[in-house]
Write a protein that binds this DNA or RNA. Sequence first.
DNA 1: TTACCCGTTTTTTTT
DNA 2: AAACGGGTAA
Length: 704
Amino acid sequence: MSAVSHLLDTLNPPQQQVVCHHRGPLLVLSGAGTGKTKVLVHRVAHLIEQKKTDIQHILAVTFTNKAANEMKQRIQSLLRLNRLDNLWMGTFHAICHRILRIHADDIGLPKHFTIIDANEQIRIIKTILKEYPSDVASFEPKMIVNIIERWKNKGLHPEDLLHQGDHKPNTQKIQQVYEHYQKALNTYHAVDFSDLILRCVDLLQKNREILAKWQSRWTHILVDEYQDTNTIQYLWLRLLAQHNHNICCVGDDDQSIYGWRGAEVSNILRFEKDFPKAQIIRLEQNYRSTPEILTAATSVIQGNKQRLGKTLWTEKKSGDKIKVYEFYDSQIEANSLSQQVADALDSGYKPDSIAVLVRTSAQTRAIEESLNYYQLPYRVVGGMRFYERSEIRDVLAYWRFSLYLDDDLALIRIINTPKRGVGPKALDKLTALARQNQTSLFIGIETAVRDGHISGKAYQTLALFCQQARQWHTWLQTLPHQEAARQILEDSGYLALWHKNRDIVATSKQENIDELISTLKNYETMPQFIDHVSLLTQADQDEDTQRVSLMTLHSAKGLEFDVVFLPGWEEALFPHKIALEENGQHGLEEERRLAYVGITRARKRAVITYCTRRLMYNQWIPSQASRFIRELPEDVIEFITQTPSQARVLPPPPVKKLSSFHAGDSVEHTTYGNGVIRHVDGDRLDILFKSGAKKILSSYVKKL
DNA sequence: TTACCCGTTTTTTTT
DNA sequence: AAACGGGTAA
């Protein structure tokens, strides 16, 4: 008997096995912790092992790249395979990206089109808005981007909006900006995130042969986290599955938390209509949590009216009650949380089986400070992402531009970094010139230099720059790519920008750049690296080290931990007031699903906390318990209140004794690095860092 | 063109 | 508290 057939028996009969064997459209409505990932992994493994299906005929869509990697690994170890190169598994965006690159010619994109991020979107919108009359120009660029995204998520192009008959004056104006924005993207040979999918759908719809090719290629389509699929993604799936009808979607309507990104639960209902023979299977046995946790989660989610409805049950043994704490303020909440983390570690839980899940990323700051103070090992998941740092984007732009001299967006980013005396004015002129001649910006600049269109100061630097750029381009063709990459940064004077500066910020930027250069060796060529990087969102750093995870509820989707802390359950923060203001009842229900996701991440212990005052914008704002706390069933919770007088006393200092400080001691600060104490003033230390002197609370520094 | 001052805003959630 | 933007002087 083969390994997998044997493993199928370890699945929990009967439904889980049915999912693995089923052919034809299948919708798996499964609750939290019912083993849906396991089922998907086994289904794919089973298909591959039976040899009836070649790996390349399977398409599996996951919600994050990380989830895809994990699933691949699990399949590999099940089948004892080394590689799964021909398996198409990844996010909608990654898969559409691959398809678009194959068919770039068919839709008039260059092979190396650029994918722009949110910052670049806003920058482009800003420049566009300048050309409009004052009423439009005063629109918030971010709002415009949001509206355009919403349209794109529904598959609406600028011209579709004209036929829609929405004649609100603002809609018409924004429609024009949308049209303008798409033109700008075209001239930059760029697409935004939503375009990856939208343009892929366009490609498939307009080109029957290409559609047929992909339809017949994929005999099996699997979709995870189906509840978070938006309209355009659904259209894409439907196009591809229409031929074979062999599509298996797994999702939980109670965990739909991306409505603001266009996800529609109605896609679940649509599925039954578009695939009439679809079978629906419900997985309702939870294998993850204690009955207490499950009861609490179920009770909260029952507050929602719009549910497909299912009843989760478990055979697990009874465990701890869910603790609900009220604290005097958010600092005390953070400190108490640290202590409880320390307790959990003491009682044997591994750091990576503990998580702190917050509603907004702003909450992480206070918690981080406290975890630092108590010297607990933690990691912020999805915080300031590596590839979003300005120095990393600069370096990537240098490389991208050197590789593709016609990449105008990259050029614009780096042309005046370091300063070459080319400001917005000069850039406007050069752009206009390039557009006039129908050339890329770089060629435009070269012409301008040759024909002497530029005056004194900028002329010198630009002439040099053009020569250098040609040189960089050649280097990438002739030298080993890692070497070329470094030389470009040297030669351009970009590295010197940070070398000059001795402060801690510059040092960390240098380190980041070094790290980026060293990752180049994992790729064979520069184009390969650039392609890969444009879709990376989370740098999977120090995965191997044992740390407590600190992240938002949204990024915790699909994960599970033994112990879960849920701080900040207060009205206005959770449910967030913007969600209520903008989306009313729907907003509230989505927040409630978020609460459900939070609680159900826990295997053994869940701790919910709130406080009566919270520090916001450096001001103390009174707060009150979230309505979700009232929705918890009393018999599974243990309620603990700290009175203000108790709360005023700060918890004792770290488990390890806090060393007393003296002038002359060397200390370390997580942000500012190493420094020397000049003067001690009670709890405040006057420290000389490389970046300059700072007065810092003793609790934030470590004695060396 | 850039550097600096001063007043204003910032906190949903992410592929 | 810290980041951002508009305005102005050099």
